[in-house]
Design a protein around this nucleic acid. Sequence first.
DNA 1: CTAATAGTGTCTTTGAGACAGTATACT
DNA 2: AGTATACTGTCTCAAAGACACTATTAG
Lengths: 227, 227
Amino acid sequence: MQEFFVTVDLVVLTIRDDRLQVLVVERKYPPYQGDWALPGGYVGAEEDLEAAAYRELAEETAIGAGVHLEQLATYGEPGRDPRGRTVTVAWLALVPEMRDPSAGTDAAAAAWRPVEDFEAGRLTLAFDHDRILADGIERARAKLEYSPLAAAFCPPEFTVAQLRGIYEAVWGHRLDPRNFHRKVTRSAGFLEPTGRTSTVDGGRPAQLYRRGSLDTLNPPITRATQA
Amino acid sequence: MQEFFVTVDLVVLTIRDDRLQVLVVERKYPPYQGDWALPGGYVGAEEDLEAAAYRELAEETAIGAGVHLEQLATYGEPGRDPRGRTVTVAWLALVPEMRDPSAGTDAAAAAWRPVEDFEAGRLTLAFDHDRILADGIERARAKLEYSPLAAAFCPPEFTVAQLRGIYEAVWGHRLDPRNFHRKVTRSAGFLEPTGRTSTVDGGRPAQLYRRGSLDTLNPPITRATQA
DNA sequence: CTAATAGTGTCTTTGAGACAGTATACT
DNA sequence: AGTATACTGTCTCAAAGACACTATTAG
């Protein structure tokens, strides 16, 4: 019976400079030495797949609260890794804005890069990681519609405008601030007011919210045909 | 570096007797000899994961056109298989009603069973297959809302009433025939009229349709609060 | 004061859900 | 005729999109 190597690879997304960005590492060793790749690594002998994903995430980022991690898909085409028959379980992580990442032991460097650079083909990744990244981005875009997941990109307390900025960055187009405000504040369980206000943006102070307990947005926020 | 066994397991769903049913096999050899399990098997040395899933599907069913196969999730908890560290990639298949299945080489028998028997705990499966089945059922239920996937359960040509029967069987409740008819026929690209009619159900003959080219239903068909 | 952002209200359109009513078959 | 199913139309209500207007800060 054939034996396989099993790895986890991570699509770690965040919002920086109002753009959706992905965490990539520079490969320190062959194959693809010097190329960019998704962070990842081998699953341990007695390690659960999800535990391996959390471990890799912790190695690359100063991980804290508010992280969302979910399984994306599994890729196992013969020949996808020249070192041997390898199946990789890809995970999607959404994290709040944070300081610069630290390179793990197998990486020469780690950096945030705008996803549009990959979508436009200006940057590419090692192995089949371009495909994995594309699947992760699509999953994130789709999930914002019907889940309160956008809050995973936010600090613990945030304003409606910040939340709207997340949607705009992920979907790549503007939303009407007034309709968005009505939509998210009237959706029971999505947001919890904290009572505090924030005055960061130079206008009238905004109410601060925490994530609510809701886990499915019904009706969803549609990305299709907004201004 | 730890080596793993990699398998594929299949959640094969169909509609029989107006109920959602799943294909299960009786295990011929240990472990769990004599128990019911999802069909599946080891991935070959030079075999793609999806190819392995198609191969297993063909071994159990007389598979034809109109099958939908998609990756569900991957399960790799240590200890989930007593034979060794095994990661399984689960796939969801939706097939039209067909004759009785044939047992594969590793199975003593193969049979369709109503999913409600598993959901109610009247039947259970070997390994962690109950969990995999639950995930597959939930995926199927969710996908009917926003994709034209229900047609995968239908023969090549079908009536609106047959299609409605699919939704009712999968979701487990009735839908208003008139609103359903309006919804699916007005949704451009969902259904293609064939010009032919069918007179199977004892009333006015119904228009026959083929699957259209649409791949995302917008707006979706909601399962939430229908009669 | 102006500029900027936060938040409310109102109008129009779309579509879901409820259900009356018409069409065309079988017995 | 009566019954069953197919299909169309109409009413009401909820929510999206567009956008006028008010509120509260900084400078």
